[in-house]
Computed example of a mutant assay.
Amino acid sequence: MTAVALAASLLTLSTPASAATNGFRGVNWADQRDNYVDGWVIPSGLTAADSYATVRTKADGVITGFQQQVGANTVRLPINPQSVNSDWWARYKGAIDSALGHGMKVILSYWEANKDGYVDDPAAWNTMWDRVTGDYGGNGNVYFEPMNEPFGYSLSAWVSLCSTWLSRHANIPRGRVVISGTGYNDNVTGVGAASALSGTLLSLHFYGFWASDTTRAAWTSNLSNRLGSYSSRTIIDEAGSPMTTGLNYSAGHQDGNTFTAYLAATTDLARARQMGIVYWPGLRTGDTYSLTRQSGSGLAVNNASGLAQIRWGWGL
């Protein structure tokens, strides 16, 4: 390796998380059963019998819908050892490859099966991440979230686990690693302050069913407390609200209802602080929060006013 190439390589490895995350305008593409599944994760619209080519073709329709109907440039997809350490991975990669082929950013997040907030099987988890980072570590549009909602761990234990992950995968630039907030990804102040995790992105989850407030001011305060001084590193990679129940999210209809006030406050704060939002879910069959539904080989929007509010939060 030449001196110039070595310097460029070192610069890439030390690149920190950016000073704003609003480049992530995203949606979650989720399994109809939820992503907490003991088995293969299969996002809505795909089936376990699909070949790589079929997954890729189906994903092309969904991803095009996310781009053209919604305006998204990011998709968050679930992974687990059952899916990656099996023959499903070679086929499931069709969804990831489709998104990348369309110029999308992809966030790959580990979901555990036992629903206890812990990594189910550390050895299998490591094998999974070795394969995933081996396949996609060289693609700058792929981001890695070691675990979704690590609510079983104390802050110190969670920081320790993430530090070990970072050491094992030291070839991945920290600016492409997304560290979940503590609890149900519900607070990033602890992980944000951890020097061992410096340079990484952070992820926060925030939902309207977590409180009963009906004003934007109350929800803004709630969200601000969860962010502390770490907004510039944080992606809200789950936030969602009912989209199939007829709610009007337009200006003038926001205060007075828990969910419309919540979504307005979340998107207003994200826009003001230049934070990315990855909506939950962009597509999930049977979920009242789903922003879209399948329509032919593509997608249709479930709530135009809700979509407009999300796009506002994205800075569009």
Score class of each variant (00 low, 15 high):
213 D>F: 15
214 T>A: 13
257 N>F: 07
112 E>M: 04
158 W>C: 00
205 H>L: 04
86 S>N: 02
171 N>G: 13
145 E>F: 00
28 N>E: 10
71 G>S: 10
59 A>G: 10
183 G>S: 04
270 A>L: 10
251 A>F: 04
243 M>L: 15
190 G>T: 05
232 S>W: 09
210 W>S: 14
265 A>N: 07
131 R>L: 09
135 D>P: 07
304 A>N: 09
87 D>W: 03
70 V>G: 09
3 A>K: 15
88 W>Q: 07
197 L>I: 02
220 T>H: 08
276 G>I: 05
210 W>D: 09
136 Y>P: 11
208 G>I: 10
168 R>E: 01
216 R>E: 06
95 A>K: 10
247 L>E: 13
302 N>A: 14
308 A>C: 10
249 Y>L: 13
245 T>R: 05
257 N>C: 12
268 D>E: 10
103 G>R: 14
48 A>Y: 00
184 Y>R: 09
236 I>R: 04
194 A>S: 00
141 N>C: 05
287 D>F: 12
114 N>H: 06
1 M>D: 07
193 A>M: 01
309 Q>Y: 06
306 G>H: 13
192 G>R: 01
162 C>H: 00
237 D>V: 03
15 T>D: 11
257 N>A: 12
95 A>R: 10
204 L>D: 01
160 S>L: 01
293 R>Y: 15
250 S>R: 01
311 R>K: 12
140 G>A: 07
183 G>T: 03
166 L>H: 03
9 S>P: 00
66 F>D: 04
137 G>S: 04
257 N>W: 09
88 W>M: 08
295 S>G: 08
250 S>K: 05
95 A>Q: 14
19 A>S: 15
167 S>M: 02
18 S>V: 13
295 S>D: 15
196 A>H: 01
231 S>C: 01
233 R>C: 00
296 G>K: 11
99 A>N: 06
213 D>G: 11
96 I>G: 05
80 N>I: 03
249 Y>C: 10
154 S>D: 01
77 L>F: 09
166 L>E: 01
215 T>Q: 02
253 H>K: 12
4 V>K: 14
178 V>F: 13
12 T>Y: 03
207 Y>K: 03
182 T>N: 06
142 V>N: 05
121 D>F: 09
25 R>M: 12
